[in-house]
Design a protein around this nucleic acid. Structure first.
Lengths: 338, 338
DNA sequence: GCTGGCACTCACGATGACAGAGTGCCAGGA
DNA sequence: TCCTGGCACTCTGTCATCGTGAGTGCCAGC
């Protein structure tokens, strides 16, 4: 259907439009790109591309702009991932190497990503359930008050207060702590529920209530959707959205404030490989005029969480994808070292 | 200088302008408010108010709008703090009571405040240094790897990884943990440095290095400016900023992304009582056209942190102040209970 | 299947007229 | 001394008009 040249025309339109933010016409195209044909020919090609739904006119007698479908084709077939420049690569290292703490890593990553892509960055904390248990700690804060601390191999630390049904002695506490750890350390959090199921049975009846309470708090902490956390940054980049920006920006800001929406957004991304969702491909209505580029990251082969950026559909896809991928890889490395 | 009636005129101007977002003229004023005088008289009063710098004209033959100085006078002498309605009060309770966790409390507070005031909300986590030590925990994650966990009476939990210079035995660990806690529990974090100063001396020389490392990590965690954390929300309310909003919004978004700026902003607020900073009274340039309403909150008399909102200078001061104060009080209560 | 030419469309900017809101000032009255 | 009504003036915002230019679609010819 689409000859090589027509694809070339589409690519040129996307590139020009991303650069100039203005509808691009046939004449300008032939001037800026060596297509080897006349404007009239390009016009014919454009008419075809428009029929097929890849480009559109804001109004008669204006240039064309790519549609979501056009960007989709561009991303899938016409563009690669642009590798970062050496200075950019170095910037990533410099910026992330100073982190002292998982919060710090995530915070720096968000800022870095926002800066590199000049868009809104979202970084999910390593998911508990997909991580491995490094340690589980139980502290006694008051006679009938415990604190449960979960530590993952990715450096994430989660804590919960527990009000015990009955006072819990130091010996019982040490006992529970030891048994708990011997069962779960080194295992995946997702498997923890099974591994601790029968634990209350092995305790004296007076302690059994407390042990059950502790375990149920532990399990609650692991519930997906609840345990997910994320950080967001670079919202001021939304101001570069375009001329029609007052209209566009509000729903986007609103969507970005809803953790649930963002988590769903990242959740829709594939577990492996990069996911690009363009305009209306995003389920959330407020994000219908944005594109999301997301990718999983992790210390090993498996992704423990995702990160990505949100920007106007009119974005530099190759560059953005390159930055997102590079950052994700390096964050993975850092987590592996910690 | 300023007669009672002139102040009344200023109040009317502020109220109308806040409501309509449009310069207010003498005729409209006399119609909407029972000033008991004619437009011409109001015009004369306005001329005086303008001479004194309380109001200004965007251009000749337009109505007047209050200046920063005008708002200042309004806040100081013409308006009180508007108490919340019962439904609003109830909403605060309902919204905050479900929190399970300090993160949760802070998160809910931010959302609540943003919703009540329809502005950008900022909530600082309880400062470590101003809180009291509830517990200090040391965990051994690997032979030469410790985790330090600090727990405050306000429910804040902070953790740090520590790489020890030498392996550290379980006995030494228990010893250090016990001595540390016996010295600091119940004391203010600010006093901790003095209290632990001489601790390394009482340890065997082989452990002394590790003990020092632990202590220095502990002290680093307490450094002001570093230990401060905060959460922000309601940025989508910036879209209600006004017509000239594309220009205004960018610097504000940028400022809001800089934790340092925000911390300084809250830091400028008085420790007790409510602080209102109007327009140019804010040191940060990007916030020159915003006002900040901030107040300290705490579980007792003393403030452990601050919270507040950022909005256009053209804001409903009495209402905003009422909401900020009410939320701060209730958050204080919640912290005291936890 | 490509090209040049041509008529047509439409957004955008400049211009000018006009209405409306608001002001400042002044002279007269309480 | 202070308030008021009246009046001339200023300025913005809006609307209609018009010309320009970019861009299109179509067609006939190569």
């Amino acid at each position: 259907m689409l000859s090589e040249r027509r694809l070339e025309v589409l690519r040129a339109i996307v590139q020009d439009y991303v650069g100039t933010e203005e509808p691009v016409g046939s004449k300008a195209l032939t001037e800026r790109h060596k297509l080897g044909v006349s404007p009239a020919t390009v016009r014919n090609d454009m008419a075809v591309l428009e029929d097929e739904g890849f480009i559109a006119q804001p109004h008669t007698s204006a240039g064309r702009i790519p549609t979501d479908k056009g960007y989709r084709l561009f991303v899938d077939r016409l563009a690669g991932v642009k590798p970062l420049s050496t200075p950019e690569r170095r910037a990533i290292h410099n910026f992330l190497d100073g982190a002292v703490d998982l919060d710090d890593v995530v915070g720096r990553t968000v800022r870095l990503l926002a800066q590199l892509t000049r868009q809104v960055a979202i970084v999910q904390y390593p998911s508990l359930t997909r991580s491995t248990v490094r340690h589980v700690e139980l502290l006694s804060l008051a006679p009938a008050r415990l604190m449960l601390v979960l530590i993952t191999d990715t450096g994430r630390v989660e804590q919960r207060m527990i009000d015990c049904p009955a006072p819990f002695g130091e010996t019982s506490l040490a006992d529970l702590r030891a048994r708990l750890n011997s069962r779960v350390v080194g295992r995946r959090f997702a498997d923890v529920p099974q591994l601790v199921q029968d634990l209350p049975e092995s305790f004296e009846s007076e302690d059994r209530g407390t042990v059950s309470t502790v375990l149920s708090t532990l399990l609650e902490t692991l519930v997906e959707e609840t345990e997910e956390r994320l950080m967001i940054g670079g919202t001021s980049n939304l101001t570069r959205f375009g001329h029609d920006f007052p209209v566009m920006i509000r729903p986007v800001l609103e969507a970005l404030e809803e953790q649930v929406v963002l988590l769903k957004l990242l959740g829709e991304a594939k577990d492996s490989g990069m996911t690009v969702r363009i305009g209306h491909e995003n389920a959330h209505e407020g994000l219908n005029s944005t594109s999301v580029v997301a990718v999983g990251y992790g210390s090993g082969d498996e992704a423990v969480a995702k990160l990505g950026v949100v920007g106007p559909t009119r974005m530099d896809y190759p560059g953005t994808m390159g930055a997102v991928r590079a950052v994700a890889r390096y964050v993975g490395q850092i987590l592996a070292e910690s």
